[in-house]
Simulated assay, not measured.
Amino acid sequence: MRTQVGIIGAGPAGLMLSHLLHLAGIESIIIENRSRDYIEHRIRAGLIEQWATDMLIETGVGERMQREAMFHDGNHLCFNGETHHLNFKDLVGKGITIYGQQEVVKDLVAQRLKDGGQIIFEVEDTAVHDFGTDKPSITFRKDGKDQRIDCDFIAGCDGFHGICRPSFPEGTLTFYDREYPFGWLGILTDSPPPDHELIYSYHDRGFALYTMRSPTISRLYVQVDHDEDVNNWPDDRIWEELHIRLQGTRKLQEGKILQKGVTPMRSFVCEPMQTGRLFLAGDAAHIVPPTGAKGMNLALADVRMLSRALSAYYKSHKTDLLEGYSKTCLERVWKGQRFSWWMTQIFHVFPNEVPFDRRRQLAELDYIVNSRAAATSLAENYAGLPIV
């Protein structure tokens, strides 16, 4: 096979990149090791920044989102038995959208197929070759047959455990990694959320987050040990903790738990995000703790930049945007890491903390809800920094 851009990974990054390239008249082929059904039903993040919401609409893949998503003006911070509302629209003129990552994937897959795009699912033994030259290629196995894609560029959108990042020449990458001493026990439940907007709760027993996937389906989290066994958390224990950490500020309705799991928390960045004609995007290059809701948004920002760089190359043979891709993306990535770490350290109980640390956290939360300047900083980062 022959195409202009070979894309590995059919998550939000790979699919959106292919869609943006199509709009620019650039051909691409996506390969994915999972099935279409798997990627369209894999529950992941569900919060979209304002600029990303606008991009989905402007590029023609936001119609269903506009009908079914929930659009929030802000969120709530809960501590000391009180809940405080931050109105992002009032503070920075932006809001957020609640729409599951799997729904974004469904919309993008449908659009790529409608536009005649090629997505090859359930491939094996993927490898990248000759990306240090002007004739890179991708090989893989499909239905027992070896196949090859010759292309001009390769986009590694294959996630943290993908093959693209490990394919960089030895010694060319620097890794920045931090593992947190806790995780999130998350449930998906057939019950309405306690509020129509998100609630971030600080409690001496640990952090809790009250979010949603729809007005009748809640996505709820409690802080647990990083290596916690989910079997230690029967349904009754989970609901008890959720009630306690909500601190009586809202009514929490219980319902059938549809999904349950523990997610460890980490921060990770690799630099650079490119070598030769191989470019990384999304989780292949960076991971953030979910506290700041930046994962999918950073991935979409990466491919927006990469699509612009590739468009400039094909339209006018300019290479400056391609050469500056890593530097430009990492500036946003590190701001996303900073904000995610900041949100994480404010709300979570860390091992070996002393009473001083708890009082400091409470003082910072009190400062946020009583200072317009502090609230504006949070709102600006949460709803999305200006996009390049």
Rank of each mutant, 00 (worst) to 15 (best):
I120S: 10
A375V: 06
D302P: 11
R338M: 09
D143K: 12
R64T: 13
F79V: 03
G162N: 09
G324M: 12
D235E: 15
E197P: 01
M65P: 09
C164E: 01
T344K: 10
Q345F: 02
R308M: 12
I7N: 05
T83P: 02
E197A: 03
N297G: 12
R245V: 03
I217R: 14
E103W: 05
E364S: 08
N232D: 15
D236K: 13
P272A: 08
L310R: 05
D229S: 12
Q253P: 01
P166G: 10
V109I: 15
L258T: 07
Y382S: 06
Q223T: 05
K327G: 04
H286L: 03
E323F: 01
E68Y: 02
I199K: 08
M1S: 14
E68N: 12
D37M: 09
R112V: 05
L385T: 03
P351H: 07
L173V: 14
E240H: 15
Y200I: 02
D177A: 11
G261C: 05
H161C: 03
R36W: 00
T133Q: 06
Y202L: 12
D177E: 15
L23Q: 14
I29D: 09
I7F: 05
D90T: 13
D146I: 05
S201W: 01
D229F: 04
G186I: 02
N232I: 00
G144L: 06
T249V: 15
T275D: 13
R266Y: 03
H19W: 14
P264F: 04
V123E: 09
P193G: 08
D130T: 01
A208T: 07
G183N: 10
S316W: 00
F160W: 07
T83R: 13
T211K: 04
P12Q: 04
D357C: 10
H161L: 11
M305K: 12
V61S: 11
G14W: 00
A309F: 03
C164F: 01
T139R: 13
T126A: 15
E58Y: 01
D320C: 05
H129Y: 02
A309T: 05
L330S: 10
G295H: 01
Q337D: 08
I217T: 15
D152F: 02
K294A: 06
R44Q: 12
Q259C: 01
A45V: 08
F79N: 06
E49R: 05
E364K: 13
V349K: 15
K94M: 01
R237Q: 13
H348V: 02
P355H: 04
Q4E: 14
Y180A: 09
M212S: 13
Y325M: 10
A374E: 14
G100N: 03
Y382I: 02
L209Y: 02
I39Y: 02
E353Q: 14
I163S: 07
G132Y: 01
G162Y: 00
K256R: 14
L298D: 10
D283I: 04
K260S: 11
